[in-house]
Simulated scan of single mutants.
Amino acid sequence: MKDLKLKEQERILNQVLQYGLTKIWFYLLGILFLLVAAFFMFWFFLHDWWGITLFILLILLGFFIIFRNYYLWKKNIFYITTHRLIDIEQRGFFERIVSEIPYDQIEDVHGKISGILGMVLKFGNVYIQTGAGRVKIVLNNIKRPLQLQQQINELRERYLSKYNYDFSGDVVSVIADKLYELELPDLYKVKKVLDNRINKLGK
């Protein structure tokens, strides 16, 4: 949330994380290392420095697996805002990929639930496509993917009905509304164009 810079008048409507139960195997692996270290603790301590070293390594490895799994789960977030979709993909401690799609660039959204566990626990994937049918964002192991698909489609339709105008009408109002979607660097570009146009008309 701290790294997410919202545009003017933009609000976050929903935050989506992967379904927690799909990560349970990683937690169990970390707990297994901790249990092995605890169960053989006295045996390790009887074997001098290498036994103690192995005990410490098992403890550190167990906590590392648990912490890394939790960290990646919390950092991989999908945001739904009033203006766009933002996907933050944390692939490790030092690699992060941020993708975003404005609603007017979305071509198709569809959800998929497969497998017995998916049907019982109601989790699956959501695929978001942009122009030319290219998949831009894939959300894996999301809780209630069909409801998420419906929410995105409804917000997309609402956004398009609000911001896609007929320019044969009041052009000034349309342009003024569109300016609220721009970031500061883009506004400076618009200002430069307007200044040049005003100077030409004023001569």
Results as ranks from 00 to 15, higher is better:
L35Q: 06
T82V: 01
E157M: 11
N125Q: 08
I31W: 03
I66Q: 05
V135E: 15
A38K: 06
I24T: 10
D177F: 01
G124C: 10
E107R: 08
I80D: 06
G169P: 05
T22K: 09
Q105D: 12
R156Q: 15
H47L: 11
T53A: 15
K75M: 11
N141D: 15
L160D: 05
E95Q: 09
M41H: 11
Y71P: 00
N153M: 15
K5A: 06
V109T: 07
L148F: 11
S173P: 01
A38T: 06
L201W: 09
N196Y: 08
V193M: 11
L179M: 14
Q150W: 02
N140Y: 14
L139Q: 08
Q149H: 05
N141M: 09
I97G: 00
H47N: 12
G115H: 08
S99Q: 15
R84M: 07
D177Y: 01
L58P: 02
Q105P: 00
N153I: 15
F78P: 07
L117A: 14
F94V: 05
D186H: 11
F63Q: 02
L21D: 02
T53L: 13
G20S: 12
R156V: 03
L29D: 02
D170P: 06
K136F: 13
L201A: 13
L6F: 06
E181P: 00
L32D: 01
I113W: 04
L201F: 09
D195P: 01
N76K: 05
L58R: 03
L194Y: 12
K74P: 00
D48W: 08
L21N: 04
L57N: 04
K143V: 04
R91F: 07
K7V: 01
F45V: 02
V193H: 07
G131C: 00
L61K: 02
R144S: 14
F93M: 12
L187T: 04
L6N: 08
R68W: 09
R144I: 06
P102C: 00
N14W: 12
G133T: 03
S99I: 00
I77E: 04
W25S: 13
W50Q: 10
L21E: 07
S161I: 00
I97K: 15
Q105I: 00
M119I: 10
V138M: 11
E181L: 15
G92A: 10
Y165Q: 10
